[in-house]
């Protein structure tokens, strides 16, 4: 059975007829060809498929596509500015060496982005707790946590990296 849903995806309004059994991950990857969102387990354990729905991070593999009806979604493809320049979170990941194989990175970057919206002045333990639903096997999380801490610090200093407020698609 199909159902037509309307949602905002990376700033664009979408109308889409989806199979009611379909996961949001399947909709994004298989129907909309947004392959930046990854599947690492398919059962909500690893966080590779994290996307932002109405200001909350969800595992899109266990989130039904129909639930996106009326909501605002951001995937990794929606983080950079329209001219392709990186958000401050993306920039920090690149500069701090937080990226290795990159498979967890879309989910990790989205979790970091939303977390810093919710908590602009985090402590290191708070960063760790916020990212505990995103598994990474390459980095030991060290430089990932460093990158998030860097963004928070730089936003507070209002320093070199221009603070890209993450309200563009909200």
């Amino acid at each position: 059975m199909n159902q037509t849903i309307e949602f905002t995806l990376n700033g664009e309004t979408m109308h889409y007829s989806v199979d009611v059994r379909q996961s949001l991950l399947e909709l994004l990857r298989d129907e909309l060809a947004l392959t930046g969102t990854k599947e690492g387990c398919g059962v909500g354990e690893c966080g590779a498929c994290t996307v932002i729905v109405d200001g909350e991070t969800v595992d899109s593999c266990i989130y039904l596509a129909v639930w996106a009806d009326g909501k605002t979604l951001t995937t990794v493809e929606g983080l950079a500015a329209e001219d392709g320049s990186l958000s401050d979170v993306q920039t920090a990941y690149v500069q701090d060496g937080a990226v290795q194989c990159g498979f967890c990175i879309p989910g990790m970057v989205l979790s970091s982005t939303q977390f810093l919206e919710d908590n602009p002045t985090p402590t290191r333990p708070e960063i760790k707790r916020a990212l505990s639903g995103n598994m990474c096997r390459c980095t030991g999380y060290q430089k990932i946590v460093d990158a998030v801490a860097d963004v928070a610090e730089k936003r507070q200093e209002n320093a070199d990296i221009a603070p890209v407020k993450f309200t563009r698609h909200a």
Binding site: T35, G36, L79, L86, P106
Partner: peptide, 20 residues
């Protein structure tokens, strides 16, 4: 320290893995 060449593609979701 040089920035790894593939990092930007990976944070933007451009990097294509086998299933992509």
């Amino acid at each position: 320290t040089e920035q790894r060449w593939d990092a930007i593609a990976k944070v933007k979701g451009q990097a294509k893995f086998t299933a992509d």
